[in-house]
Simulated assay, not measured.
Amino acid sequence: MGSISKDDVISIGQLSARTGVAVSAIRFYEEKGLLQPIRTSGNQRRFLRSDIRRVSFVLIAQRLGLSLHEIEEQLSLLPQGRTPNPRDWRQISQQMRRSIDKKIELLSLTRAKLDECIGCGCLSLAKCQLYNKADKMGASGATGPRLVLD
Rank of each mutant, 00 (worst) to 15 (best):
T143V: 15
E105H: 10
D135K: 02
A134L: 12
R54G: 03
T40K: 00
V23Y: 05
Q94H: 10
S67C: 13
A126F: 06
V9H: 00
T19S: 07
E105M: 14
F47S: 03
S67M: 11
A139D: 08
P145W: 08
P86D: 11
V21H: 02
T83E: 10
R54P: 02
L78T: 01
L75C: 02
R111M: 12
A142T: 12
N132R: 02
R97P: 05
Q36K: 10
G138F: 04
Q80C: 13
Q95H: 11
G119P: 06
K133S: 15
I100D: 00
K136F: 12
I104N: 03
Q74I: 05
G20T: 05
L77F: 05
V55C: 07
M1W: 01
V23S: 04
V23L: 13
I26D: 01
I118K: 05
D7T: 12
P37T: 05
L34Q: 01
T110S: 12
P37V: 04
D51A: 09
S41A: 15
L48V: 07
A17P: 02
I92F: 02
S5M: 13
D150H: 08
L149G: 00
F47Q: 02
Q44Y: 13
A17L: 13
N132D: 12
R45L: 07
C122H: 01
E105V: 08
Q95Y: 08
R111W: 04
D150T: 06
G65H: 02
Q95W: 03
Q94M: 15
R54Q: 06
K103T: 09
G81I: 06
R98C: 14
D101N: 12
W89E: 00
A17E: 10
I38Q: 05
V21K: 01
L107M: 13
G2D: 14
L109K: 04
R98M: 15
W89C: 03
I38L: 14
E31S: 12
C117G: 11
